[in-house]
Amino acid sequence: MNFAFGSTEITAFWLTLKLALSTTLILMLFCIPLAWWLAKSKSWFAMLVESIVALPIVLPPTVLGFYLLIAFSPQTLLGEHYQALTGQQLAFSFYGILFASLIYSLPFAIQPLQATFSQLDKRLIETAQSLGARPLDCFISVVLPICKNGIISAALLCFAHTVGEFGVILMIGGNIPGETQVLSIALFDAVESLQYEKAHNMAAGLLIFSMVILIIMNMLKRGQQRATD
């Protein structure tokens, strides 16, 4: 197997990296406080939010992509305002697939974070509060450092899941080189055009990447377990 990559694959690689990094950064900023609230709240509203957040796990990507495609239409409020501001459609653009990716990868960020926060020993928080720490101080100085391995694992899972996204990206972005053609779409395009060597190269690269991410996540998980024991 020859691991020589052409300009199409390199462009798709950088676009995939940009999408995955943007999705992971935005979701982690949003999901860390949300996951903390979900882990601590017992209200029916939290249960409803948790169920809505988990929808992309069970919902076929084409269904989610179809409804997002309708939502991004210039005839809708969102699509109309975006087109008025930028002069472009939201669908079949990088920001369209970024928005779709944020929704589709949401549970893959929330659920690991929520599980990590749920396993935290409550006595540590109670001790910090008894020493006069305010809730925000307690969260920043106690919760985040103790749960750092779980947070990193959630970020890695979110990043890896975004790299592997296909159905939603294809529905929302199509296959536009340099704009929406990420690695998974480029791989599909290579197979469709019978360029099997190119497809092998991309598939092998994604397989190796996935294995490395899983190994790192398992190492972090074991480290987190030792820290909480």
Rank of each mutant, 00 (worst) to 15 (best):
F30C: 13
M1L: 13
G167R: 01
G223L: 04
K198M: 08
S101Q: 09
V168M: 04
I70A: 11
R134C: 05
P60S: 08
G79R: 04
L90T: 03
Y67S: 09
A227M: 10
F209C: 04
L113I: 01
F72G: 00
F139H: 08
L21C: 13
K42T: 14
G174N: 05
S43N: 11
Q195G: 05
A84T: 13
L25Y: 10
M211C: 14
E165Q: 14
Q129R: 14
L187R: 00
L98M: 08
G205S: 07
L27T: 01
F13L: 10
S153Y: 02
A4D: 14
S41D: 15
R134G: 14
P33S: 09
E9A: 14
I172T: 07
L136D: 03
F108W: 12
G6F: 02
I213S: 03
D189A: 14
L77W: 15
L106T: 04
F72P: 06
F92T: 03
I172Y: 10
F166R: 04
E126H: 10
A12F: 07
I110E: 03
P135S: 09
L183Q: 02
S7F: 08
C138M: 15
A71P: 04
G79F: 08
L156Q: 03
A203L: 08
V168A: 05
M202C: 04
Q75R: 15
L156I: 05
F66N: 05
S130V: 10
A160Y: 09
T16V: 00
H200Q: 13
F166D: 03
V182Y: 00
P74I: 03
G96C: 01
I110G: 05
N175V: 02
P56F: 06
L34C: 08
S153Q: 06
L55N: 05
K18S: 14
S22F: 11
I146M: 12
F13G: 03
T8H: 07
L48K: 11
L131Y: 12
G65W: 09
L120R: 09
F3H: 11
T180Q: 04
E197D: 15
M171N: 08
L131Q: 10
G167T: 01
T62I: 09
Q195T: 00
Y196C: 00
Q75Y: 13
F108H: 12
A12Y: 09
G65V: 03
P107A: 01
V163M: 06
M1V: 08
A4T: 13
V143N: 06
L113S: 07
M171Y: 10
E192T: 08
G205Q: 05
L21G: 12
M47N: 15
I172K: 06
E165S: 12
T62E: 09
S51F: 14
T8S: 10
Q225K: 09
A91I: 08
Q83A: 11
L77F: 15
I151M: 12
D121N: 15
